[in-house]
């Protein structure tokens, strides 16, 4: 079962449940931020986009202190898969479950647009359905999505194969012009050293139906589904 966390300011929580449940046919349910434990049977935790607690201080800064995050931290430490999208990515960085931080976009403006992403790491549980170098078209929508680590840290992340997705051109070239927010190394997604926690700024839950623009989000969400299936 997928546990989709619901902070009071989550916006994409219901969309994530829709993507997992109605489109991919998985069991997914909302889990309230004030709960101290994840529901029994939780196999994967999804932190959706939004503004968790209004985020007037800093995106995700308050959410890490919510009761449910202690349970998520334990779940991740035990090897459970945890995926944070957009605000969820920011929360995971604030909570120390992922390296780095997300700063205001380079041009200081919110951006909602389709993004092209080159797959840099093909591995369970997040990208097993992808092929190396595959270009995914998944939308972004954020004001604070500029991924930041020191260049040295980035080199270590790259060496450890922790960079999962990079912003690229439709042809797959990683260029500055294809970087929508100024992220270092065009990084759009990273995972932790163990590979069971990933954060990404793009929104796979908004790319699951051709009717609404793209189905490439299923590559990521479907990989998680495969992973859970393989462990059952």
């Amino acid at each position: 079962m997928f546990a989709v966390l619901q902070f009071p300011g989550s916006n994409d929580d219901r969309d994530m449940v829709f993507a997992m449940k109605s489109v991919l046919g998985a069991d997914a349910r909302l889990v309230w931020h004030k709960d101290a434990e994840l529901p029994a049977g939780t196999q994967c935790v999804l932190l959706p986009g939004g503004f968790s607690y209004g985020d007037y201080l800093r995106c995700g800064a308050m959410a890490r202190f919510s009761p449910i995050m202690a349970a998520v931290t334990r779940f991740a430490a035990a090897g459970g898969p945890v995926l944070g999208t957009c605000n969820g990515f920011q929360v995971l960085c604030e909570a120390g479950l992922l390296p780095g931080a997300l700063l205001r976009n380079r041009d200081l403006a919110f951006v909602c647009a389709p993004a092209h992403l080159r797959v840099e790491r093909v591995a369970a549980p997040f990208t097993s359905r992808a092929t190396p170098g595959q270009v995914l078209r998944i939308p972004i929508k954020h004001g604070e999505g500029r991924y930041h680590v020191t260049p040295e840290k980035l080199a270590r992340l790259e060496a450890a194969n922790q960079v999962v997705l990079r912003y690229c051109t439709p042809a797959g070239d990683v260029t500055d012009a294809a970087n929508p927010n100024g992220s270092i190394g065009n990084v759009a997604a990273v995972c932790n050293a163990a590979g069971n926690v990933m954060g990404l700024m793009p929104h796979p839950e908004h790319a699951v139906e051709a009717l609404t623009g793209s189905t490439h989000g299923r590559v990521i969400l479907g990989s998680l589904l495969d992973f859970l299936g393989s462990r059952r």
């Binding site: 916006n11 994409d12 219901r14 969309d15 829709f18 993507a19 986009g49 403006a109 919110f110 951006v111 909602c112 647009a113 939308p139 929508k141 929104h203 839950e205 908004h206 699951v208 139906e209 009717l211 609404t212 623009g213």
Partner: peptide
Amino acid sequence: WRQYDSLVQGNTVIGPGGDAALVR
């Protein structure tokens, strides 16, 4: 309109830039 979230709720069939917006 690039500064507006036109996608949340996952029903935007035609978003900004079309003659009319179309929402499932």
